[in-house]
Nucleic acid binder design. Structure first.
Lengths: 150, 150
DNA sequence: GTTGATGCAAAAACTTTGCATCGTG
DNA sequence: CACGATGCAAAGTTTTTGCATCAAC
């Protein structure tokens, strides 16, 4: 764990990963990744929220750069892009320590329950390994109708 | 199976479901549902595609109504809304005969492999039943990096 | 005849892009 | 000091909404 400035902390070698792809380690990319590291896995933000959170921290980054950076960090495996029922995407830190959680969603009222399933995780691992893929993350959404709406 | 006009076929009691909610059975709603029934489960269309397909069939329905109808049919459990990597949502007929299929997706290049897993389906059934939900549909997405991109 | 649904066009929400400038490597 | 990244503003996409009119019940 390497301290780069008063508040930027690198938990993963972002710089070296970027370097391999001919990309550069910029203040903006660090700020975005650091924000997600500070809020921790399991919390998700929209692009707009990243923008305003950083503004609040006096670390303004333009919205265009935020969109570009979120896409990059997803492709590098740092963040997970999630589509919830709200409009737009949300992003969340990927972490080995934090188990993938799955969602049971009511199609009528949107009520959402989280659950975990080792069977599901195992099926994801198996599917990836059979096809020779390196597993990054899995998500399971179950659409249903909740007791209240039935 | 009830024939309503030369090309509209009702496979499910759309009218009665709508009626229960104080909603009306309109030509437009029938046209949209019928389109999905004709192409069958396993094929998905965007709102824009529904619009142009219907136009080709000389059954023009406005795009605004298509958006309103798609949302309604999803909430009534006739269609499944899917978010693939392209911009925008896609919609697909729900069917008990057609097993839910799952996706292994490369986060670098977008290559997608389909697979099926009874364990996953069973986990979805169990999660719904434990919480007292009526299962509609489940989808499992595994994000990974494919052999070519590794 | 009531009231919900439609069509249209305008607006909102979300995301991408062109280009001049900046800053990393 | 070259070339990738940023910021800005403009444009592109996708989806929603207000309102007058239409049609299902």
């Amino acid at each position: 764990m390497q301290v780069v400035s008063k508040y930027l902390v690198i938990r993963n070698p972002l710089g070296s990963g970027l370097h391999q792809e001919g990309k550069r380690l910029t203040k903006q990319r660090l700020k975005v990744l650091n924000l997600f590291e500070n809020i921790g896995p399991g919390n998700h933000l929209s692009a707009e929220e990243v923008h305003s959170e950083l503004k609040d921290l006096n670390s303004k980054v333009s919205l265009a750069t935020i969109y570009r950076t979120l896409r990059l960090l997803v492709q590098m495996g740092y963040l997970h892009e999630r589509e919830l029922s709200e409009g737009g995407h949300r992003y969340e830190l990927l972490s080995n320590d934090f188990p993938d959680h799955h969602h049971l969603i009511c199609i009528k009222c949107g009520r959402t329950e989280e659950f975990e399933s080792d069977q599901v995780l195992e099926a994801g691992r198996k599917a990836a390994s059979i096809k020779g893929f390196k597993l990054i993350e899995s998500s399971f959404k179950v659409k249903a109708i909740c007791p209240n709406c039935l």
